Amino acid sequence: MEHSAMTAFRPSSFATRPGRWLRATLASVTLAGALVGCGGSVSTAEPFQAGRLIVFGDELSLMVDSDGKGNARHYGINALDSTDSSGSTVACGTANHRIWVQYLASLYGLTFAECNPNGIDDSAILALSRASYGATAADLKAQVLGFEEDLQGGFNETDLVSVLVGLHDVLQVYHDTTYATMADKEAEIYARGKVVAQMIKRMAGNGTRVLVSLVMDVGLTPYAQALGTTEAGHLTALSDQFNLGLRQNMSNDGTHIGLVELNSVVRTYHNNATLNHTELACDEDHRNTDSYAGGTRTTTGNLLNCTTATLVSGDTDPATTYLWADALHPNAYLIQRYLGQLAQTRASDNF
């Protein structure tokens, strides 16, 4: 049985930012709605200190260090280095423009090789990413099993693992014409959520702490909204079934698994009329376009190169008021930042 903590969550960096929309957003999201522990809060004599953070999932958890300089880009709106007058250098560690796993790593003072602007020695790099673009539940299984088999030596009791996957499962199943009915699609996507739950239980069984996020409501993405109300509703239903398959098969005692709800975060922001949740922040030359012919994904575009200097023009700053970088990927300044702060709180409360 799952139990929900009822303490309201108020991230400090949000609390200092003015604006009625932000205060309204924070007031509407509580740990009961966006942070759901699996088994409740547990008091420990000594707080858990992660020795390593291991990241699994899709591009919502991915940084790409294309030039090997430890200054990676992510699939969102990347911040620029203010000291570079050419405007071509990103600053991967910039506050408020990081992805959620960077917030989680910072809670324990851990550094990713992909974002290492201070040049920390390789021996001290203890935040390890195994995420990949387009990953599905099946890919997650391969990521986890591969980690167990590689030179890292598998999982141990001082490891913290993050998991976020499901976006591309939902889209693949939705577009796959081999399923005759929506009921068939819902059964398939539920089974995929169950696969994720099985991998989480496998890792937690080693004493490893696992922080998992539910998949976002794909029906609220601009990609889905452009398909019309009925089709967007189908994508929402599939998102919910994936999350149901995950949650119903992920029993634990609350000490080794923590849950954050990206779907609740996206729904909360989507309902905020002061934010732009339909237009895309990155300009046309800096977006990814994912398509799913018969359930097979292909992608084009250059979202990694979207920065605060390559945004659409408008009456408001797209970097701070647009929910979406492109049709499927959230703006790091809003959704990723909030998810990261929720993850920090859940890790502190559960572990």
Score class of each variant (00 low, 15 high):
Glu2Leu: 15
Glu2Arg: 15
Ser12Arg: 13
Ser12Pro: 10
Ser12Leu: 13
Phe14Leu: 14
Phe14Gln: 11
Ala15Glu: 14
Thr16Gln: 15
Ala24Lys: 13
Ala27Tyr: 04
Val36Ile: 09
Val36Trp: 07
Gly37Trp: 08
Ser41Leu: 13
Glu59Pro: 03
Met63Ile: 04
Met63Trp: 07
Val64Trp: 05
Asp67Ser: 07
Lys69Gly: 11
Ala72Asp: 04
Arg73Pro: 00
Gly76Asp: 00
Ile77Pro: 00
Leu80Gly: 04
Asp84Phe: 03
Ser85Gly: 01
Val90Ile: 08
Asn96Gly: 08
His97Pro: 04
Arg98Ala: 02
Tyr103Ile: 04
Ala105Asp: 06
Thr111Glu: 09
Thr111Arg: 13
Cys115Asp: 08
Asp122Trp: 00
Ile125Gly: 04
Leu128Val: 14
Tyr133Val: 06
Ala135Arg: 02
Lys141His: 11
Lys141Leu: 08
Gly146Ser: 03
Phe147Thr: 05
Gly153Ile: 05
Asn156Leu: 00
Glu157Val: 07
Val165Gln: 00
Gly166Met: 00
Thr178Ser: 15
Ala180Asn: 12
Ala187Asp: 10
Ala197Asp: 06
Met199Val: 04
Ala204Cys: 01
Gly207Asn: 00
Leu214Trp: 01
Leu214Asn: 14
Val215Ser: 07
Leu220Lys: 03
Leu220Trp: 00
Gly228Met: 02
Thr229Asp: 15
Gly233Ile: 06
Asp240Asn: 12
Gln241Tyr: 02
Leu244Val: 07
Leu246Met: 07
Ser251Glu: 10
Asn252Met: 10
Asp253Ala: 10
Gly254Trp: 06
Thr255Tyr: 01
Thr255Met: 05
Val260Asp: 02
Glu261Tyr: 09
Glu261Gln: 12
Arg267Ser: 14
Asn271Glu: 11
Asn271Ile: 01
Thr274Val: 06
His277Asn: 15
Asp283His: 04
Asn288Phe: 10
Thr289Cys: 09
Gly295Lys: 10
Arg297Lys: 12
Gly301His: 11
Asn302Val: 04
Ala332Cys: 09
Ile335Arg: 03
Arg346Asp: 10
Asn350Ala: 14
